[in-house]
Design a binder for these strands. Structure first.
Lengths: 109, 109
DNA sequence: CTTGTTCACTTACCTATCGTAAGTCACTAA
DNA sequence: TTAGTGACTTACGATAGGTAAGTGAACAAG
C-alpha cells in the first residue's frame, strides 16, 4: 500500500490537526477567503458570506487575529471604520486551501 | 491587487464552503488521515487519533460514509471486525489536504 | 454454567458552542 | 430631536461535543 499523505510521527499528526481545526471551525476559512477577495470591512465580510452572523464574525475575527492570520486596522473616520487584512501567514494558509476548491469542482453533485 | 484564490461567483463560494464544512468538522479529517495511513478498524482509528472518543468516531464514520468518502466492510470473524476504507472521492479529498500539512510545517511554533 | 474478554458500537447526561434577536456606543445628518 | 451608520456585545434557547457507562454477540477460562 502506498500512502497518500506521509505522516510518520505523532508530531506531524498534531501539526496537521492544529492547522485543520483552526481553518476548519465554521466560517473561519470563508472569512479568510472573503478578506482575500477584497472584502476587508466588518459589514462587507458579513454581506459576502451568506449565513454568517455578526456575532460569530466578531468571535472568529478575534480568533484569526490571535492566530496571526489577519491584522486589524482602525481608521479614524466617521463613523469609525475597521479594516482587516491577511498577514503573510494568512495568505500562505489560504493558498494552501486552493486544492480544496479544485476538489469541490471535481466532485460537485 | 492580485487575488489569491479566484472565486468569482456565489456557486464557487458555496462549493468551497461545502467541501470545507465536511472536512472541517472536528475529527473528520483526522479520521480520514488515519484510514489513509492504514488504520482501518474502529479500535485502530481511536488508538491513532489522540483525543477522539468512540462516540464521536461512530458519528463521524456515519457522516463520512454518507458523504461517499469512506466504505464500511463487515468481516465475519470472532469477534466481528469492521474495516473502513477510502473511496476514490475520499482519496482525492485527502490528497487535496496535503498542502495544509505542508503549511503546518512551514509555520510550526 | 458462570464469569471475563474483545470489538464495535449506543445511551444518558452535562457542558460548550452556535444562531437569532436585540441592545450599545460614538458620531453625524436632517 | 430623531434617525442612521458601523462595529460590535449581551441574552438566551437550540444544537453539537465530551465523559462515562451500558449493550450484544461470540468465544475462552475456570
Amino acid at each position: 500500500m502506498n500512502k497518500i499523505i506521509h505522516l510518520i510521527n505523532d508530531a506531524d499528526c498534531r501539526l496537521f490537526q492544529q492547522s485543520l481545526e483552526l481553518v476548519g471551525k465554521r466560517w473561519s476559512s470563508a472569512i479568510l477567503l472573503a478578506i482575500a477577495n477584497g472584502e476587508t470591512r466588518f459589514g462587507e465580510i458579513i454581506a459576502s458570506v451568506p449565513g454568517l452572523s455578526d456575532r460569530l464574525l466578531s468571535v472568529r475575527l478575534k480568533e484569526l487575529e490571535h492566530a496571526g492570520l489577519i491584522e486589524r486596522k482602525v481608521i479614524a473616520s466617521t463613523p469609525v471604520q475597521v479594516r482587516y487584512g491577511l498577514t503573510e501567514r494568512g495568505i500562505d494558509l489560504i493558498s494552501s486551501l486552493q486544492p480544496l476548491v479544485d476538489y469541490g469542482h471535481r466532485w460537485e453533485d
